[in-house]
Amino acid sequence: MRFEVATSVADAVRLLAAEPGTARVLAGGTDVLVQLRSGMVEPALVVDIKRIAGMRDIVAEAGGFRIGAAVSGAELGEHAGVRAMWPGVVEAMELIGSTQVQGRATLAGNLCNASPAADSVPAMVAAEAVARVAGPDGERDVPVAAIPSGPGRTTLARGEFITSIFLPARPARSSDAYLRFIPRTEMDIAVCSAGVSLTLGADGTCTAARVALGAVAPTVVLVPEAGAALVGTTLGTEALDALAAACAAAAKPIDDKRGTVAFRKKVAGVLARRATIIAAERARAEA
């Protein structure tokens, strides 16, 4: 196995594109190193991108924020601007792993690991986050939702890697929230999860809502019916029941060691309902 420290985006692209065997990009390494040690992958090349200029920066851009691919969960959590605008994305990222893991783990890494149970991904999908991808053909912007293609697989081509994640600007009275279910209180992987991002009108009516579920399908599921159930309502019991029912219907989970189909379908709705209530409280506090 060869280990290279890339000095620029172009350098990283060149190294990755030139490798005929399996290559892995190392940002925080909290998934890659576990996979290496367990023998799950034996890559021919590992490229460390965190020394590339800009990879550890959070920059305000077009009213939103651009988050470098090597920004850790701890750094994201300490950024007051991102916290205020996208508290759901931040809380999702901060749920990953332990304090030590938080010092290393990244949004981009969580996305590229392509686990259906990734915590930050439903929150980013609800947020309409966009990944900037560098590759042999230059840069392209891809919705976060379009990056994972199945468990452990992404749509990134050979030589491509994510350089940053963009969280867009928001209208007034907007906020988001993320909840996951785990049997413990920390240090665990979601049995199912829900990210909700919404905007309220001046009268408290929901004017926009996006709901995404984790760990209920091979990739994160955006549930338009769930968002639609909220829009035009004041988020009363009826709307929340419709949201939960839409989530349960959209969830296509499996029985496994972490949970059953029945459990995941039901709890996905419960979490979406609870996350909606939290997001709405935050949105109202915005006003």
Binding site: F181, T260, F263, K266, V267
Partner: peptide, 8 residues
Amino acid sequence: MSPPRILA
């Protein structure tokens, strides 16, 4: 008495 068992 894991959560799926209790919920079931």
